[in-house]
Design a protein around this nucleic acid. Sequence first.
DNA 1: TGGCTCCGTTCAACAATGCGGAACCCACAC
DNA 2: GTGTGGGTTCCGCATTGTTGAACGGAGCCA
Lengths: 262, 262
Amino acid sequence: MLSTVRRVGQVLELFGMDHPERSVSEVASLLGIPKSTAHALLRTMCDIGLLRRTADRRYRLGWRILALSTTLLATTQYRVEARPVMGDLVARFGETVHLATMESGRVLYVDKLQGTRAVQVSVTGIGVELPAHCSAVGKILLAFQPWPEVEALLSRTGLPPLTPNTITDPERLRAELEEVRERGYALDIEEAVLELCCVAAPIRDHRGEVVAAMSLSVPAYRFHRQKDELRRAIVAACREVSYRLGYTAYEDTQRRRQAASG
Amino acid sequence: MLSTVRRVGQVLELFGMDHPERSVSEVASLLGIPKSTAHALLRTMCDIGLLRRTADRRYRLGWRILALSTTLLATTQYRVEARPVMGDLVARFGETVHLATMESGRVLYVDKLQGTRAVQVSVTGIGVELPAHCSAVGKILLAFQPWPEVEALLSRTGLPPLTPNTITDPERLRAELEEVRERGYALDIEEAVLELCCVAAPIRDHRGEVVAAMSLSVPAYRFHRQKDELRRAIVAACREVSYRLGYTAYEDTQRRRQAASG
DNA sequence: TGGCTCCGTTCAACAATGCGGAACCCACAC
DNA sequence: GTGTGGGTTCCGCATTGTTGAACGGAGCCA
């Protein structure tokens, strides 16, 4: 629809880590539109603060994006509540903690607290998307989606193997998700990155809906030593966040009943 | 120009801290446009990720804003270079450090490292604008703008007094900025917030241009005790960042010569 | 249960809007 | 001086977005 607005989206795509600045004619040629059109577009995007003009007449992402992202983060309730709990986890284990959510069929990292250990894990950044089928948070988020939606998602992305341990068989994944749902936590044993293991659990809002997942990411050699402890910790942490979001177990059981009967 | 894009800007304005979600008809009435128009607009903004739809058919800021803000921050060179230096300052003094820049005549906070002391300062967040005439970073940024631009800015905002110490007389401000430029640092002695003092210094890029300002924000009672030390520290820190940005003193003196002759 | 209102969404016709080619200006290079 | 490549301006035409009315669903009250 609104093709002008769609163009705005295309323009924003052009500003990546590798291309922080672009010129009018660059944008024009990349988008396959005349210079004049690109010019008008860029200029108006400057007006509304999505872009800004540098001294040498090139364009960069604008500061308003910063302002928007702060209000976005400040008003995302589960992130606000999760923050201190994530801090506690880092303090206790020194391991990296991730917070992710499902956004239009993709797993999106919403927050991250770097661990303090010397041997570090550094795979993701905030605002980045990752494949769902091979990460612990991804499995959690998939597990609590209706299966048809999961199927739709899979048909788009497939099940690309990132390591020898990645689940590549849909039926196998389905069984895994079933299990995840039952026991309330998910594992990733070197399925996304070799040498890296994760445990994740679901965060529910006041309606019992799973709105996010939180995980501990730990180098394999440390993970196996304290697997149970880590699992208990992440489950407890997510329960704590859910509680702060107004979730009470009652609604959960109620939901399960509905799901069973429906 | 491009009125549709401008509308996008107006829509974004509606999503503040106090209104994280909005409905179609809300947006329509607030913008004074028909529902159908608002609907098309919101929907397309969802498509491009600036907004997202909640389960109950309302709209929120979209996650793409997060992704954009991470690339924005990662590609803002002076912020990248300033980060570790800011960390050093916090480690050394335990006081809050701010990084700010000038954006279309406004002082905008780009980064902030919270101090570790018990008695804390908490005024600003990232992506927030503050009046320029009464903060230390503001004075720095104003001081290195051509005076006509400063005047234009002042005629828009005026010199509202935030405390009894705020400078409210344009001539007095002009003299102050002159002084700031000479000595290379700026002070804010309870001019923006009572009980709060700041010292700031300029950060220059490889061309000698002042691109940002960094400050220490300290409760008054602690500030006066170690004023000189704090001043030396922030000046040295900014010099360090400028150096990392490729700034060499030579270009600075050259610039001064130009300014003197021009 | 039926009728009420409120809200999001769809549709099609009309008119304004943004599109894009060409022309202009400027800086820099050869 | 001339040529190239950048950003910017202009204006007529047709595409695009606007609009109001009509639809369908959810929730409320009698």
